[in-house]
Computed example of a mutant assay.
Amino acid sequence: MLKFRFGRALTAAAIATASLLAGPATAAQAAAGPTPSPCVAPGSNQFNRTFACDKVLRTLPITIGQTRGSLKFITSHDIKLNYLGTTYTDDITVEFLSYDGNASIAGLTITVGATCSGTCTSRVQPSLVNIPAVVGTRAVGQAIFTDSTTTENTSAINFSFTPTEPGTVARPFTENSPPVRCDNKISAQGAGCVFPSFVPTFTLSLSDPKVAEVAQHVADAQQLLPGHPGRRGDGTPLRRETNETTNRQSRAIACPPSTPRPAGKSCDEYPMASTKQGAKYGGPFSARMVDATQNSTAGNAAYLKGTYTKNRILDNDEFWVSVIA
């Protein structure tokens, strides 16, 4: 079974390498060819909202009559989702390393299969069918998935590896990935897919002049409010609220229109009104007058809104809020 370490985020370098917010490739990216996987050593596995990789060293016991053998090989996966589309791929590699035993495996092959569920369909490239189990052979191919959902579909992704040779007893084995959710619920963006079990992070920087005052407010609020809402490590994640009426009500409670705004300032609330920890829900909150332009910028497509859309954070989805230097 493909067991990803849930919550183990990729490093910044790995994110850059794997193009994790995977939209359509540019012509230059396509010409450059595939990028290296961040999962290099057997036993490594990582994932985030739109990418997962895994590399496993396997031993396949083989029986032919009274003879026995043991085949060692590596299977690897690089699953690349698309937050702007519902077709996604898994780059699969099968590499045979060694064989020990007196059972003949001259005709042994392994076929890779892939399945998904709900409105998802899948197919496997021919290069992964009937792979000769010859030491030194390395087969590379893709499993390709397409989800036709018009609303939302969470799909189990399963892989099968089936050995075939007349007279040979070698049990098939299976692997799976974290479930994939495809949806068409974000207006004006179209459908796309993510790993919903990965909790993404919205990041603000104290040294970013475009949002510095908002970042300081969030840092202070996370420190002072009971439970440290949204802060990874000692707090709990925030949850998205997509109902605009509720958002307006939270905003009005935290930042009443009657509260005077100094020139050039606007009222910033935390937790954000677009969360289920917003002021309407009755939990602790903080409000502060901050630079109006910075406040507006922090909520736009380059910051909070962009985090929501690129990670396809739907209603009730969790996310963290991080303030860095």
Rank of each mutant, 00 (worst) to 15 (best):
K3V: 15
F6E: 15
A9R: 06
A12D: 15
A13S: 12
P24D: 14
T26C: 13
C39S: 05
V40S: 02
V40E: 03
T50E: 14
C53D: 12
C53G: 11
K55W: 05
P61V: 07
T63S: 03
I64P: 01
D78P: 00
L81K: 00
N82Q: 04
Y83D: 15
G85I: 11
T86C: 03
T87I: 06
D91P: 01
I92T: 13
I92Q: 09
V94D: 11
A106F: 08
A114C: 14
Q125A: 09
P126R: 00
V129G: 01
N130A: 14
P132Y: 07
P132Q: 10
T137A: 04
R138L: 12
A143C: 05
A156P: 05
S160L: 12
P163A: 13
T164N: 14
E165W: 01
P166R: 05
N176A: 10
N176Y: 08
P178T: 09
R181I: 14
D183A: 06
D183R: 00
S187I: 11
S187C: 08
G192Y: 04
F195R: 00
V199Y: 13
P200Q: 06
S205G: 10
V211Q: 03
A215E: 01
Q216R: 14
P226K: 02
P226C: 06
H228Y: 06
P237Y: 09
L238S: 05
R239G: 10
E244P: 03
T246I: 14
I253E: 09
C255R: 00
K276T: 10
A279Q: 11
G283A: 04
S286L: 15
S286E: 12
R288G: 03
M289T: 00
A292R: 00
N311C: 03
N311M: 00
L314Q: 10
F319G: 04
V321W: 01
A325D: 15
